[in-house]
Design a protein around this nucleic acid. Structure first.
Lengths: 191, 191
DNA sequence: GCGACTATGTTAGTGACTAACATTTCCCTC
DNA sequence: GAGGGAAATGTTAGTCACTAACATAGTCGC
């Protein structure tokens, strides 16, 4: 096997990347609804069918899960006396602070498109499913009632996504600042 | 003008009601994706075109905003010392407690369908737009920073919707109990 | 170079919607 | 209780997201 496990370079990977590049550019220029899958495919030098073989839906071209179930991993280290919402928020904040800064320009481009496209704002919630499940599992593991855990997880992710939108729109300088503020509102630090 | 402002009974209203009745029944029996707009229209004795004249999208047949911007009206009466998330949660809880019990069977039917249909879970967030805006406006009016207000509003609504799902799925006995629990998790009462 | 496998192309279809125009049904007025 | 005009619905012909079945073309190990 090749050692370049992080950046595959086969034919399929190249086609996929062309679809992403041309797709995001077209969508930013013309808007999401005004850009058809066929257009993107043509721009990438490929047929519509091939587009859908790479992305099950048009949404997925934009919403390549920017979320990460890994975010939930810090929750277990938070004091159990805290109520679930604050434990979740504090745990995510701790993980975030320990992470290297991610690929911001690419993520921001995607989030900005999602923030401006009503149809995608809804889809964004679906794409957080894995992360939400991970947060719920972690909270329940630590003894939280399952319903309370689901409520807390959805609230924390809603706050996070809202913060991301603000960052993508330029209301907040850095991604880090947006996340810190969003999590503060849901009680990551004591209020 | 007629005095029956609450229950229109014209031809259009009757057609709309037939579409809702047959639509919800078909969808509950066969699933949302498996039920086409044409099927629903035929069951209601009209054409597909008429269906879309009553509901801009198939989603809207199910998601006739069960949310109410009126929920935001109690936020102004909460103490301003509270952080925004808790003010929003406490305000909504206060309004809820002051309301008469709504039409539960109909709402529950809709929420249950939405809870079981991934495509609708995303759409549900879009349909809370008005309520979210009302909460944000109320918080900002009372002096909250706009970004914090948006984060708090989205978190409160996420909690509410998650509670509603649990109620529709039968995990919580009453709608009231579901709402109280969901709002408690986001700090409606002191923790 | 040659097969096996993978990536892409072709064709034909379904279903959610939209636009433009024709037709029916209701209801209000005289 | 006709008649006219608006509201409600029907018809037709599309576009676009997405799917299925089968055909072709690159690619890679050997």
């Amino acid at each position: 096997m090749s050692t370049t496990s992080t950046a595959p370079t086969g034919r399929r990977a190249r086609t996929r990347q062309r679809l992403i590049d041309h797709g995001l550019e077209l969508i930013e220029r013309q808007g999401y609804e005004q850009t058809t899958a066929a257009q993107i495919a043509a721009a990438a030098g490929v047929t519509e069918m091939t587009f859908f073989r790479h992305f099950a839906t048009k949404e997925q071209l934009v919403l390549e899960d920017p979320y990460d179930p890994f975010l939930a991993s810090g929750i277990g280290e938070q004091p159990r006396e805290l109520p679930p919402l604050r434990r979740a928020a504090a745990g995510i904040l701790a993980v975030w602070r320990s992470l290297p800064e991610p690929e911001q320009p690419e993520i921001r481009r995607r989030v900005r498109i999602a923030a401006r496209t009503p149809a995608l704002r809804g889809a964004m919630w679906r794409s957080t499913g894995n992360t939400e499940a991970a947060i719920v599992a972690q909270l329940v593991d630590d003894g939280t009632d399952p319903l309370d855990a689901r409520v807390a997880a959805s609230a924390v992710l809603a706050a996070l996504v809202t913060g991301l939108y603000a960052w993508a729109d330029g209301e907040v300088e850095t991604l880090g600042a947006a996340i810190e503020r969003a999590l503060a509102v849901v009680g990551a630090d004591r209020d």
